[in-house]
Design a protein around this nucleic acid. Structure first.
Lengths: 232, 232
DNA sequence: CCCGTGCCGTGACGCTTGTCACAGAGCGGT
DNA sequence: ACCGCTCTGTGACAAGCGTCACGGCACGGG
């Protein structure tokens, strides 16, 4: 395993810091290795510090009293989790749980705040990170408010194709390592609706092929275009 | 009209700056007075600078191709609009239009960025502001994803009661200067559904009295509690 | 005074989607 | 090989809500 300093320097938020400062932060970090389904924190709890994902996948979500869940973000290696409440001192706005066995580091709040105030580059990086979340949320809100389930799913597949897909013929191939239950939470619907929407997208030719987790889909622009026009 | 410097110093984002710095910013501000229904910018345009509302009300929204709208925020006096895209250089994620005749100041991007990097207090204020938006959005997303129209409306009324309400008996009285159309856009539904939801809340006793814009509603905690449990 | 315009209430209808119920498939453990 | 578990597909049904259509009301201007 490489030194913690080297690892932190790979991470966008810390990338622009001087090595000396990173080393100081690294000294205060608490590494954690946890299994699948481990809850990092729950919505409403007071915020103790920042998590950064080194390996694995963390799901950030809101849950309703009757058990349904809406996923707000899924964070992978190198991404910070819950950088928001560090500053205004408020509670976590959402809950977080690991989707896979994961390695994380935990950085206590005081340490991070110090770095934030000491270095404008850190501040800028934090603002960019928050900005990205905000953009993503506005986007998500729009699709949940306006589009039907099939369109939302098409959007999700388009994102996935862009992130992890490989061109194959005139389409994109990728592996979708999520259950339908998890997909449903991401687009704010029920598991059964995802199943039906997948069938619908397949008959429309937007999903060309599907075997287990292997997907072959139409180009992402085509998926998005279809979703934007409400389908047809 | 008071000097622009004095006005800017009232505004949270600039409140902590030294007077000299504020004066410098004020010199670069462009004041604008616009009527109702004036579009400040549209989603997707490149961001030129920051708006701050001095007087009036600005609605920030996303619109769907088929004409429906989801408002993301309503900003009043002293609030910044679109501070997000200033930093990552991306386009506006939403559109903005005035709901009333308004006075604004416009601060070109370069100026603001300079202040941001020069003063960690400004950076902290920006992060707090973004944080507030993010919290609000997560909240909004949850209600749109989980709750029915009546519950969303109850939430909205609770917010309104907290912001501008006056206790009256065991309830809260306030004036709601919005059309049902605007309410519908805020909670992501259709005008007619708002009308029906208002009736429903009235028969349930959560709205005690309603005459034109004057509302008398149950205490905000009661409204929120009812909304959270899905009603009944 | 009458008409146009904007806002609000309400009925009818159909589509989407959440829910319940159940069957089959894959898979790992014993 | 058998069981139990999770994941998936599918049918039936009801509720919520968006849409259309229409009528009433207030208000302001000619």
């Amino acid at each position: 395993m490489p030194s913690l300093v080297a690892v932190l320097q790979q991470i966008p938020i810390f990338a622009e810091l001087e090595q000396r400062v990173v080393a100081q932060l690294a000294a205060r970090c608490v590494p954690r290795t946890v299994g699948e389904g481990f809850t990092l924190f729950r919505a409403g709890e007071r915020c103790a510090g920042l998590y950064v994902v080194l390996e694995g996948r963390v799901r950030v979500y809101r849950s309703s009293p009757d058990g349904r869940e809406q996923t707000v973000a899924v964070e992978g290696a190198g991404r910070p989790v819950a950088e928001l409440p560090l500053f205004d001192g408020g509670p976590y706005p959402a809950s977080a749980v690991t989707m896979t066995p994961s390695q994380l580091v935990f950085l206590p709040r005081g340490e991070f705040e110090h770095a934030f105030r000491a270095d404008p580059d850190v501040a800028a990086a934090v603002v960019r990170s928050l900005g990205g979340r905000l953009r993503h949320l506005v986007q998500l809100l729009e699709t949940v408010a306006f589009r039907d389930v099939a369109a939302r799913l098409a959007m999700l597949l388009a994102d996935y194709a862009d992130q992890t897909g490989a061109a194959q013929g005139d389409g994109v191939a990728f592996e979708l390592d999520r259950t339908q239950e998890e997909l449903a939470a991401e687009i704010g619907t029920a598991r059964e609706s995802v199943s039906r929407a997948l069938k619908q997208l397949t008959t429309r030719g937007l999903i060309r092929n599907r075997a287990g987790n292997r997907f072959l889909v139409a180009p992402s622009e085509q998926l998005r275009a279809w979703a934007r026009t409400g389908g047809m």
